[in-house]
Design a protein around this nucleic acid. Sequence first.
RNA 1: GGCGGCGUGGCCAAGUGGCUAAGGCGAAGGUCUGCAAAACCUUUAUUCAUCGGUUCGAAUCCGAUCGCCGCCUCCA
Length: 467
Amino acid sequence: MQIYNTLSGKKEEFEPLNPPDVTFYMCGPTVYDLFHIGNGRSFIMSDIFRRYLIYKNYNVKFAMNLTDIDDRIIQKSIDQKIGSDKVADEFTKAFFDDIKKLKVKEADIYPKATEHIQEIIELIKQLELKNLAYESNGDVFFDVSKFPGYGKLSGKKLDELESGARVEVNDAKRNPLDFALWKKAKAGEPFWESPWGNGRPGWHIECSAMSMKHLGESIDIHGGGNDLIFPHHENEIAQSEGASGKQFAKYWMHFGFLNINKEKMSKSLGNFFTAREILNRHSAEALRLLFLQTHYRGPLNYSEDLLESAARGAEKISNYYRLLKEKLSDSSEGKPFDIDLDAFKIKFEAAMDDDFNTPQAVAVLFDLIKSTNKQLTEENSLNQSSLNEVLGFMKASAIDVFGIISEQENQPVRSGLDDQLIRLLINVRTEAKLDKNYTLADKIRDGLTALGISLKDGKEGTTYNIN
RNA sequence: GGCGGCGUGGCCAAGUGGCUAAGGCGAAGGUCUGCAAAACCUUUAUUCAUCGGUUCGAAUCCGAUCGCCGCCUCCA
């Protein structure tokens, strides 16, 4: 299996440090607001990578941090005149609600910055001891010039960075590129006690401290959006490797942006849709399929039409899966599928093994659907074990890895009485049809459609689905 | 200014040296149906931004040109 590593700029063979264990850290949200679908792309794609590693029988430990103290949170707490912890709590809860709706599996651990102040302080002390950090009037900075590998992830050279620097003016810094490890508290800001006085952690240090605490000094995969390469991930490497002397992360993965009209979707540009808003109009499956149909490293120019077309595709896959299940419950024996299922499995895995080429892997699933759908609709009985094999593969790929099939069990539970009432209406409609009273028949069907119940007239009578 | 990425059918998007350029959506025609829905069948790029070059052979490598985007500052 190959993964593109930002560190080398190439695809590399994936060899975890301690197979079959894989440690995977993803930069998570700053909980100051609802996240948008650009952020959602990272959450969903990392979820899918994690699921695929599980599919490959790796024992994955997946961590995603929650940044629950930072400038934007403080700003919001001032604006709303509530504690910064209240702001963080509110949006942490919102984050969990939203990723659940996006069908993102819960991480093994969600470390929070404010719950790791002690570890952060210890890490900064180590950096001071190694002369990689210096204190200046209550702030502590990382001394970029003392870390030889600075710039190795982003491919930037120190002198070039300095010449074009647009960094904040701060006389306390020795070098404009030095970044804060610890920030002195200003009046009215929340703070924690430290050897340098009251203050709070800088943005980058939490990821280093928490990743090393929960996953170890060296981990396998560290991921995030493209915009985190510099300076965030570059700084994480400097801090972590400066302190431990060991490689921080073996593979660095970065996601392309979600654009609108070819511009990056971002809070500051105001051109964003929250995941919550999108989920009011579309299913999680549609959004997941949309993301899967573009390679994760490339940009994705979002539009409502694109999501609409992904929604159709997702429906097609779900319809197919439902039909497979229906045929299976019908107990007769018949012909097996006239396909080589293993060939599809091999192609699916080959695509995923090639740096998570999900567009190609999805295409393999559509190919499978195409080559079995005819038999599925036309044969009145199929071989049960053949059905089971196809169903098993679809479950392993489209459900367990991709999460793009809406299953019956996710739909509102209907009582037996509801079922009987619907069947009663279907029977009345069937009689109306026999009497050629199509006006009445259509009235019943339209009425049920309006209630979210769609009817399907087949050879063996009418069936229904609840949307 | 420095660094990086991209330009493939109506829309989206794989493919990065050699079988007829995947797949999805859309569109057109057909099968089924009272009509639908779903499903199935057929059609839909002699061509991969443009121009040169390398090669027996290029969408894929090299050069130039045009266009678009990102990072260098908080940002997934």
